[in-house]
Design a protein around this nucleic acid. Structure first.
Length: 426
RNA sequence: GCAGACGUCGCUUAGCCUGGUAUAGCGCCGGAUUUGAAAUCCGGUGUCCUUGUGACUCGGGAGUUCAAAUCUCUCCGUCUGCGCCA
């Protein structure tokens, strides 16, 4: 959510940003109108409250001096003021609620370097990493590999839960745990604190960190407790400091979250999504930074550098792209994706997403740091380190051997008892 | 799950019984003093607005009242004991 001062003093900046995104200005104008109406109603109500306070002080003084007639007369004068205050107060509250409901839907201001374009076709290449390996035989896609090796049982997942749920087993399950361990260790070495978050969140905290539409399309609700299963540990880790004033000496806060992630993935998917590429549940190692506003662009590069270091160490071929205006979403100001080469699928596909959300989440979460001129919103950033399901797909497709076994990246072998390849399930 | 106690400004804390301007300490910021620092002293230190002799703020919400941190109801959370439990 943008700070209200943006609408009062710099609406031209928001309008220019909407122009880049191809949005109309209606919502901006409505927020400004509701804000003005709220301020008027608020002022009128404040004047009435002032009168009531003066009367109350008059009653107190009269009673203290024993003049009960004067007290009675003041009380008679202000007998109906409470009802008027309630009425005006209700109107002002309504204006404020409407203003902020609308303000929640207005997206973050994009960084000036974000390329303009309608959809992911207009994302621009930032850098290439690693080499495209010559397999010397026809590449299988990961779905063929998991089926021929028995590493994932999709049919029984569907039976006991539903479609896109699965049992992961054997060497692939062990590699999944190795990826978690390695990813967490890699970031702890770089000064990040390991955190295992709650896997459910309440509505208020969740509204602080995500697009409202996600409640319909992404998150699972848990009844009757009114909780939501987290779609990523970014959400609890970012909301962790909600309603807090952070001492500047604590910044920057660097966290590495490890958790299962739950996603409804509403909307039909085609055959191209078979396998474990797009599933309802996976594990993710996530980087989080909460920092001073002046430092966030530096930390954004730091998060990208961490992701690049990790994926280089896995020995995989991938590219980094700048996400364009049409592919950006509501919360981020700038976003980089890592896209891994999938020889079986024949393309580069998203495995890491690295975002600077500036003060957008912090405003919703009332998450501030102390300054000499008052308290100001912090900036929040997040980036995938490893989403295990997608990293497994990239490893399987790039490291596959002719017999269908898969070579294990060197850095993961110590976590696999020294094993060099994934063997079929017996 | 049951019973009891508790929730006050960044932290600690007084006020609650008996309704009438939110107390003090710590921390932090500024100033005085000092060659500099410590110590000491003075002032400031939540939010909002049309910046006023302004409004709001005592876990959230509702109620009673001229007036609620204070009384009532309700929800949330914490602690203690009991119960259950990997």
């Amino acid at each position: 959510m943008l700070d209200i001062s943006m609408f009062r003093g710099h609406a031209d900046v928001i309008r220019a940003d909407h122009d880049r995104r191809g949005l109309t200005h209606e919502n901006i104008d409505e927020v400004i109108r509701l804000d003005e109406e709220w301020r008027r109603a608020r002022y009128d109500a404040d004047q009435l409250r002032k009168a009531r306070n003066e009367a109350a002080r008059g009653v107190a003084a009269a009673k203290k001096s024993g003049d009960s007639a004067a007290a009675d007369s003041i009380m008679a004068e202000v007998a109906d003021i409470g009802a008027k205050i309630d009425e005006l107060g209700a109107h002002s509250n309504e204006c404020l609620a409407q203003r902020d409901a609308l303000r929640m839907r207005i997206p973050n201001i994009l960084h000036t370097d974000v390329p303009v374009g309608e959809d992911d076709q207009k994302n621009t290449l930032r850098s290439m990493h690693g080499e495209k390996v010559e397999l010397g035989f026809e590449a299988r896609n990961h779905n063929d590999l998991i089926e021929m090796n028995g590493w994932v049982d999709q049919a029984r997942g569907a039976k006991v839960t539903g479609s896109r749920f699965y049992f992961m087993q054997g060497d692939l399950a062990r590699l999944e745990m190795a990826l978690q361990q390695y990813g967490a260790d890699f970031l702890m070495d770089r000064g990040y604190t390991l955190v295992q978050p709650p896997l459910m969140m309440n509505r208020e905290a969740y509204e602080g960190v995500t697009d409202l539409e996600d409640f319909e399309t992404v998150m699972y609700g848990v009844e009757p407790d009114k909780h939501y299963l987290i779609a990523t540990s970014e959400h609890p880790l970012t909301a962790m400091r909600m309603d807090e004033i952070i001492e500047p000496s604590e910044l920057p806060i660097r966290l590495v979250g490890v958790s299962p992630c739950f996603r409804r993935e509403v909307g039909a998917h085609g055959l191209s999504d078979r396998g474990i590429w797009r599933v309802h549940q996976f594990t993710k190692i996530e980087q989080i930074v909460i920092c001073h506003p002046d430092d966030s662009w530096g930390h954004h590069e730091e998060l990208l550098d961490n992701a690049i270091g990790l994926w280089d160490n896995l020995g995989l071929h991938y590219r980094v792209v700048n996400i364009c205006t049409g592919d950006m979403g509501t919360v981020a100001s700038r976003k980089y994706d890592l896209e891994a080469w999938l020889p079986g699928a024949g393309g580069y596909k998203e495995v890491v997403s690295c975002s600077n959300c500036t003060d957008y989440q912090a405003n919703r979460l009332r998450m501030r740091y102390r300054t000499t001129e008052g308290n100001a919103a912090v900036h929040t950033l997040n980036s995938t380190a490893v989403a295990t399901s997608r990293a497994l797909v990239a490893i399987m497709e790039q490291n596959q051997m002719e017999d269908g076994r898969v070579s294990i990246p060197e850095v993961l072998r110590p976590y696999m008892g020294g094993q060099g390849a994934l063997e079929p399930l017996q």
